[in-house]
Amino acid sequence: MAFNLQNSMEGLISVFHSYSGKEGDKYKLSKGEMKNLLQGELIMGDLDENKDGEVDFQEFIVLVAALSVACHEFFKDCDKSCGLLK
């Protein structure tokens, strides 16, 4: 199991550094680098199901649904004292 975790961590670090440092600090992602990382590694790769190089509305709505679920999970235990939910 440690081997799988180590490989996963190495992969994440490698992807980060393949995008960072092109516009400045090699240990940070600029706004443009972050955009490129998201487009190249996450959005297009995961959403473009038919691999046509474009994300249509049906493919886009998958992202919206996934983000909604993730936000719901994050905030479901938040009470009124956190100031985020009414």
Rank of each mutant, 00 (worst) to 15 (best):
S68A: 13
I13C: 05
D79H: 03
K35C: 05
M34F: 14
C82H: 07
S14R: 13
S30M: 01
L42E: 06
C71V: 10
S81R: 12
K51S: 09
A66L: 05
D48A: 09
A65P: 00
S18N: 13
F16K: 04
M1S: 08
D77W: 08
L38F: 10
K22E: 01
K51M: 01
I13R: 10
Q39V: 06
I61E: 01
M9N: 10
G24V: 04
S8C: 06
N36S: 11
V55N: 03
F57S: 01
Q39H: 09
L29R: 02
L29M: 02
E23I: 03
S30A: 05
I13F: 04
L42Q: 01
K80N: 02
E73F: 12
L63M: 15
M44I: 08
I61L: 02
L29E: 03
E54H: 13
A66G: 01
K22D: 00
A65E: 03
A2L: 08
G24Q: 07
K76V: 09
L42P: 01
L67F: 10
F60Y: 15
F57E: 00
E23D: 15
L5F: 06
G53N: 14
I13P: 00
L47G: 02
K26M: 11
F75E: 00
A2D: 13
A66H: 07
Q6F: 05
E49L: 09
K86Y: 09
M1Y: 14
D52V: 06
V15S: 07
K28S: 14
H72K: 11
